[in-house]
């Protein structure tokens, strides 16, 4: 009895300590990237001063920050179309990809007929696809939405097909013993199993859709962060160029964070575990 209580009392404090250190380590990890970014900005500022770099080659972080404030109206005016194009493109591309994946899972013949073509289209670089799509859909926002949708489409299609088909075979046997219909197997088994795969794809799509919209704007647009990047570059307005890049990246990171948050709320189980 004495041994038991001694063992119990000796494990308790040591059992608590690792837990506490794990959580504080996790806290340090979330702060770590911010610390690194701050250090890099400081180093950049110091180096730009030290080498007296001209502003059009490499503006200092301070100059960029000033531009972010003074050019805020311009940046916002150009941000709105890019944000809208990438968001609508994200919705469109992923929706179509999910629907096509569902079709593929239900018809092997359709998959055999169309999957190779989807792969082929995916191999065309976005820089080659973009002008073609601008020619077809014009210089307005539609072509950018379509380009953003295209860039989201393939990763989601590939992941979703895998997700819907990677169902534990024993779970399928279970559903058969339960005399479940095809629709029940789809909604109660295939769809939930596919969610972890879908979210991996959506996280990729959240950042690439912004890339797609910007590339589309390069080809031809009056307004948008892509158009602003081209304009700032041609006019040697480097602080504005950098500021635009920060806004574009900030939007992509925010988009990614929202999708990651949704993933954490929805996928509460441990994927890949065939419990």
């Amino acid at each position: 009895m004495a041994t038991v209580s001694r063992v119990a009392s000796s494990t308790e404090p040591s059992g608590g300590a690792p837990g506490a250190s794990v959580s504080s380590r996790a806290g340090r990890h979330t702060l770590l990237p911010f610390g690194t970014a701050a250090a890099l900005l400081v180093a950049w500022q110091v180096l730009a001063w030290a080498f007296a770099l001209p502003i059009y080659i490499a503006p200092t972080p301070a100059q960029i920050a000033r531009t972010l404030v003074t050019e805020l109206p311009t940046l916002l005016r150009n941000f709105v179309p890019t944000a809208a194009e990438s968001f609508v493109g994200f919705l469109l591309g992923n929706t179509v990809a999910i629907l096509v994946a569902v079709l593929f899972v239900h018809s092997k013949r359709l998959e055999a007929a169309l999957y190779p073509i989807a792969v082929f289209i995916n191999t065309i670089p976005i820089l080659a696809k973009a002008p073609i799509l601008v020619l077809i859909f014009g210089l307005g926002m539609t072509s950018k939405v379509v380009i953003a949708a295209f860039i989201c489409f393939f990763p989601t299609l590939a992941n979703m097909v895998r997700g819907l088909t990677s169902v534990n075979p024993q779970s399928l046997e279970l559903m058969r013993v339960l005399s479940a219909s095809r629709a029940e197997v789809f909604w109660k088994l295939r769809v939930p199993s596919s969610l972890p795969f879908l979210f991996s794809a959506l996280k990729i799509a959240s950042t690439t859709s912004v890339l797609g919209a910007i590339v589309g704007e390069w080809i031809g647009a009056d307004l948008g962060l892509g158009a602003l990047i081209i304009e700032a570059t041609h006019n040697f307005r480097s602080p504005l160029l950098y500021a635009t890049v920060f806004v574009a990246s900030g939007w992509a990171v925010l988009f990614f964070a929202v999708v990651s948050f949704a993933e954490r709320r929805i996928v509460t189980w441990k994927p890949g575990e065939s419990a």
């Binding site: 024993q170 559903m175 339960l178 005399s179 479940a180 029940e184 109660k188 088994l189 575990e273 419990a275």
Partner: peptide, 29 residues
């Protein structure tokens, strides 16, 4: 017929109770 496999074959996104309920939610009966 009830079937118990070597693996529990639970649906990982369902709670214990929801897993037990599954047979009541699918099939013609």
């Amino acid at each position: 017929l009830g079937f118990v496999f070597q693996d529990p074959t639970l649906l990982p996104w369902r709670s214990a109770l929801e897993n037990v309920r599954l047979p009541l939610e699918v099939g013609p009966q």
